[in-house]
Simulated assay, not measured.
Amino acid sequence: MSSSARPRMTGIGRVLVIVYAIMALGATGRSFVQIVERFDEAPLAYTLSALSAVVYIVATLALVFAGRRGWYVVAWVAIVFELVGVLIVGTLSFVMPELFAHPTVWSWYGMGYLFVPLVLPFLGLWWLATHRPVAQPTGATTAAVAS
C-alpha cells in the first residue's frame, strides 16, 4: 500500500469501509438463504438481494483500494449503481408492492436495514468526491518508457 493511500483509510473512510463490509456480509447471507430455501416464491426479489450483495462486495473492495485510479472509478460506478438501485427498488416497492411481497435489501429504501442502504451511497459518493486519489509522480514512469 502506498503512503498516499494510507491516510484515506482513517476516520470516515474507515467507517464507510466497515459499514459496506457489514452490508456485503448481511446481503450475501440473506440472498444465499433466500435463494437456497425459497427462490421459487420470489425470484425477482431474491435475485435483487443477490445483486445488492455483489454491489456491496464490489463497493467495499473498491473503497479499500480507491487510492488507485482504476479502483476509484470502480468505486464510483458501484456506488452510483447502488444509489440508483435503492431508489428504483425502493420506489417500486411502494408503487408496485406485489413485485416485492418478499423484501429485498433495497425494498422500501432499505427500511429493513434501518435505511442504511438509502443513506450509505450518499455518504460514499461524498467521500469519493472529497478524497480523490493523489496523482503519482510520472517522472519515474516517463524515464522508464523513454529508455
Rank of each mutant, 00 (worst) to 15 (best):
V89W: 01
L120A: 06
P121K: 05
V80E: 03
L87F: 02
V54D: 07
L87S: 02
I57S: 06
L44D: 06
P7G: 08
L92T: 03
L51E: 10
L128Q: 04
Q34C: 08
G90K: 06
S107D: 09
V73H: 04
F39E: 05
Y72C: 05
I18T: 09
T28F: 13
W108D: 09
G26A: 13
P121V: 07
I22N: 08
L120T: 02
G11Y: 03
Q34Y: 11
F32D: 02
Q34L: 11
V54C: 14
R69H: 04
L25A: 15
V74T: 12
F94L: 13
V134W: 00
G13E: 07
Y46W: 11
A42N: 08
T10N: 10
F81L: 14
M111I: 11
L99T: 03
V105L: 13
T138A: 12
A53D: 06
R132S: 09
E37S: 14
V116W: 00
L120K: 03
L63P: 00
P137R: 02
P97E: 06
I22D: 00
V89P: 02
A50M: 12
V33L: 12
R30M: 15
E37N: 14
P103L: 11
L125W: 02
V77A: 12
V95P: 00
R38K: 14
F94K: 13
I12S: 10
A75T: 05
R69L: 12
S31L: 07
G26R: 08
P137T: 01
S93K: 04
P133I: 02
D40P: 00
S52N: 13
L25W: 07
L128Y: 07
D40V: 15
L99Y: 03
T47R: 12
R8F: 04
G90A: 09
E82P: 00
S31Q: 07
L87I: 09
P103W: 06
L99K: 01
G85Y: 05
V80G: 05
T28R: 04
R38E: 10
T10K: 12
E98F: 09
G110A: 07
A5H: 05
M111A: 15
A75K: 06
E37Y: 07
A62D: 01
Y72W: 11
F81Y: 09
I12L: 15
L123Y: 01
V19N: 09
G67H: 00
L44M: 11
L120M: 05
T104R: 01
V84A: 14
G26H: 09
Q34E: 15
E82Q: 11
T138Q: 15
R8C: 01
T142V: 11
I12F: 14
L99Q: 07
S52I: 10
A66N: 10
V33I: 15
I57N: 05
R30A: 14
R14D: 06
V86Q: 02
W126I: 10
